[in-house]
Design a protein around this nucleic acid. Structure first.
Lengths: 196, 196, 196, 196
DNA sequence: CATGAATGAGACTTCATTCAT
DNA sequence: CATGAATGAAGTCTCATTCAT
């Protein structure tokens, strides 16, 4: 009896992340993913409807983790909005720091998926960003954050900034330390480039 | 002989921007681009080596404009670092505001191209980002900007933020005004979300 | 899983010989070959890298057979150089007499392939011609063959002569009997046109 | 007034021989031929119906020369059949020795043309080979040549042998001297490989 | 469930040929 | 006659997906 029985789905997903990261979604071959997962090509279609479905499931899993982690960190009563914003940023960095390939797929392919508007990952994606907005509102109410900011703009802004940094980092993780990036992001987000 | 009207190349480029924006590079068909440009399919190959070359040329033209405009705005002696940073942001918003499709292509396909490391657009791309760094350094020297910032991180951060906003805007230009976005970007960049 | 029946590759090869013979390599369509082989167009690419590879494999198989047959016939200790030369000629005629299409492909396309210098068929091709030279040398040593002959010239001469005859024969196998051709070749090769 | 006026047709033909020799008929581009001939692409179609017509004209010119030269040499009353056969071989070697590219085109593309059965070059081609037969018959009558030979087989045999030698020589004219080849051909043709 | 040989639709690209000037 | 930009038909090859075992 094989112990790994029943892990094929996970194997495929992990292989897919690597292959999508290296070649990009469109140049990734199902046969390559199968090979990396030690599985026959046809088996991919036992667990997934089609190629897009594989990508979709990667994002669903990702956003579910991101949201749940964020929710946990953020719902604490004892944290200030300031600290909560830090935590939110931490969640993103924590998840991707253990899996650079995932960061690359995340950055390169998210747009394609959003266009096709498929997948329940959207729900978690939105809820995650909503958390950011909630914190922002809290901060404004507590007179900690500027009331001039448009909440939607802020969320797109900060998300794009972090995504781009993760991408750059993932391409060459040794060039800049993720810790330094994380620290800088928190600082710029809170204070901008100006001296207080 | 049939005189080259001098417009076909431009027609193809403009059509390509639209088609790439709508379908993404990989799902864009040369035949569709040709159709939109009122040109035979084969004519695309009179002006461009292949499909990738069409995309490349879009980016070459784009970055050349971006850099030259930025250079002009930024080299003024009478502006403060603060004002120069505003100008740099203005250049990006000005160029894309007249061509939302270009913004979408820009956001979605730039990563693919950077990976393949082809094309002379890289030169202008780097020089443009260098301009940002120069301004940042000026500002730090003038004690206007925080000296805590890592310059590379900042440049990736701000670029990603703006790119993401442009993308969101381009998908539905009527939802948020570009002017409002531009104003918010300048504010967050300078002051972050905190109240001074 | 669907079991590889082990015949498709051979079917494609046989179909290819016919199609290449009828239309020539450049005017032969892969789709036509597939059709004749009762196989989908794409299946050709399961067994062969590309169109040229199909042609290459025909020649590889052909030369391997030719060389091995010749080797067998020629290595006998009991034959005179004279008889060995006859055997060598027999091998060529025997192989092609059962497959006229193969003779046509052989004549028309061998030059293209030699230029591109690809394929392991070259090895057998050279070894086959080497056999001819060995026999020639034996005969000269035994004072049976003229010592005036340049061995390289002879090998190109006789090979071209036979190739051309096979080609003519293959185009219309009923016009001249292969047996008569075979007999004449042996005679001319040995005695030339002059009366002894 | 340009002196070369009226030579465009010849320029194109000469360029075509070179290009056909280097790339083979099917991979030869009309645009390349035009370039080499210092002529616009379209001009090729002023003088020739299409690509095949260019090749056809090369062969027409070639066979006309071959036949006329052979006719001259062979009709002499004072030569023996033996000497006439030598002359016939000389004609072939003389024509190609001044233009190796022509030899290559001749060898590689003649078969394609014969299949399509077009062109008046066929007439001269046949008449040339007829000359060979006439000489052979003369020789047999004079008891100089063996009566065992089938005339058609001989003509295909000797023609293939020479063609193959010319081809080999044209690919690398410095490796074997054409004179040596010519001499060997005459010898093998007359006496075969056996010692008289 | 698992397999992987087989499929075939579809897109890029080439280049002989045309024709307006 | 000469030009060369423009055309578009046609073929190679890829690869996601299927399905018989």
């Amino acid at each position: 009896m094989r112990i790994k029985e029943g892990n094929k789905e996970k194997d495929i997903l992990q292989a897919a992340v690597k292959v999508f990261a290296e070649y990009g979604y469109h140049n990734a071959k199902i046969s390559k993913i199968a090979e990396l997962a030690n599985v026959a090509t046809g088996s991919v279609y036992v667990y997934f409807k089609n190629k897009k479905d594989v990508l979709l499931r990667i994002f669903e899993d990702l956003w579910e983790v991101l949201y749940k982690e964020a929710k946990k960190s953020v719902s604490s009563k004892s944290l200030t909005p300031d600290q909560k914003m830090d935590k939110l940023i931490d969640v993103l960095f924590d998840v991707f720091s253990v899996n650079p390939s995932l960061a690359i797929v995340f950055v390169n392919e998210q747009n394609h998926l959003i266009l096709s508007e498929e997948g329940k990952f959207q729900i978690f994606y939105d809820k995650f960003l909503d958390l950011g907005e909630i914190i922002l509102r809290e901060g404004i109410k507590a007179k900690q954050f500027s009331s001039q900011l448009d909440r939607i703009i802020f969320r797109v802004y900060i998300f794009g900034a972090i995504r781009n940094l993760l991408h750059r980092w993932a391409q060459d993780p040794d060039q800049i330390s993720l810790e330094k990036i994380r620290h800088n992001v928190k600082h710029i987000t809170k204070f901008g480039i100006s001296i207080k």
